[in-house]
Design a protein around this nucleic acid. Structure first.
Lengths: 124, 124
DNA sequence: TGAACATATGAACAGATATTCATATATTCC
DNA sequence: GGAATATATGAATATCTGTTCATATGTTCA
C-alpha cells in the first residue's frame, strides 16, 4: 500500500493497490522527457509541411521556402530543429544544401498521425 | 515550370521541375495543421506521463495526480487536452472520474516515439 | 579579388502554453 | 440540508516557441 501522500490529494489514496502496481512501471523522467521532446518536433505545421515535402524528395532550402511560401530564414531555423532531432540530414553541393530524411520510422509515425486525423474527420 | 516567384527567394527557382512536381502533391493546409495539432498533444512530458499511466490501467484523476506527484488541477487541465484530442475517454462513478485510452493507435505511436528515443541514445 | 548568392544564425518580439491559485460544480454520506 | 470530497475551470503568470529582421558565413563565378 502507498504509505505516504504526495503534496497533493492529501486526504486519501483512492485506489492504493492500483497506484502501487503502476508506480513500479513508470519510466524514468528522463525517458518521458525525451519522448515528449521528440514528438514536440512534429507539433508544428511548418515542420510537418517540410517533412511532407521531404517524403517526396530531397530538396534544397530555397526550393522548400518557395514551395511553402515562407522565408528562407524561417525554413532554415526549422530545418535546424529537425536536424537536431535526428529526423533529417543534409548534404552540401557548392553553396546549395540538400535536406532529406534521416530516419525510416518517421514516415510511419507521420502516417499514423495522418490516419488519426482522417478518422477524427469521419467521426464528425 | 514554376512561372512566378514567391515573395521569398526571388532570384531563381533552383530546381523548377522538382518544385513543380512536389507542389502538386502537397496536402491542404488544413490537413497539415490538424496533423501538427495532433502531435502537439504528445509534445508535453506531463501528457506523456499520463498516457504511460493509462497504458497500464484505467485510473482516476486523484490517483494520477498522486502517481505523478502533480496537482489535481494540472492533471485535470491536461486530461482535458487529451480528451479534446480524442485520445482519452472517461467514465463517471459517483464523484470519481475514471480516464482511459480512446484510440488503439495511440500506444503504437507512443512506442515508435520510445523506440526513436532509445535508438538515439545508442548512437551517442 | 569582388560581386552575387545560398544558407545559417543571433536578437527581438509576438503569440502560445503549462502550471498555479482560487473557486465552482457535482456527488456522497451523515 | 450541510459538510466533505473529487473534479473542472477561469484568470493570471512565467516560460517557451516561431517568425522576422539584420547580418554573418561560405561558395561560385566573372
Amino acid at each position: 500500500m502507498a504509505e505516504k501522500r504526495a503534496p497533493y490529494c492529501e486526504t486519501t489514496v483512492i485506489h492504493g493497490e492500483v497506484v502501487d502496481r503502476v508506480s513500479k512501471m513508470l519510466m524514468p523522467d528522463q525517458v518521458t522527457a525525451s519522448i515528449a521532446e521528440f514528438f514536440k518536433v512534429f507539433g508544428d505545421q511548418t515542420r510537418i509541411r517540410i517533412l511532407q515535402v521531404l517524403f517526396e524528395e530531397e530538396m534544397c532550402v530555397c526550393d522548400i521556402a518557395y514551395l511553402l511560401n515562407m522565408s528562407q530564414s524561417a525554413i532554415s531555423h526549422q530545418l535546424r530543429v529537425l536536424k537536431q532531432a535526428g529526423i533529417v540530414k543534409y548534404r552540401k553541393d557548392g553553396r546549395v544544401v540538400y535536406y532529406s530524411l534521416d530516419d525510416e520510422h518517421i514516415q510511419s509515425i507521420f502516417e499514423q498521425g495522418y490516419q488519426h486525423v482522417m478518422e477524427a474527420k469521419e467521426k464528425r
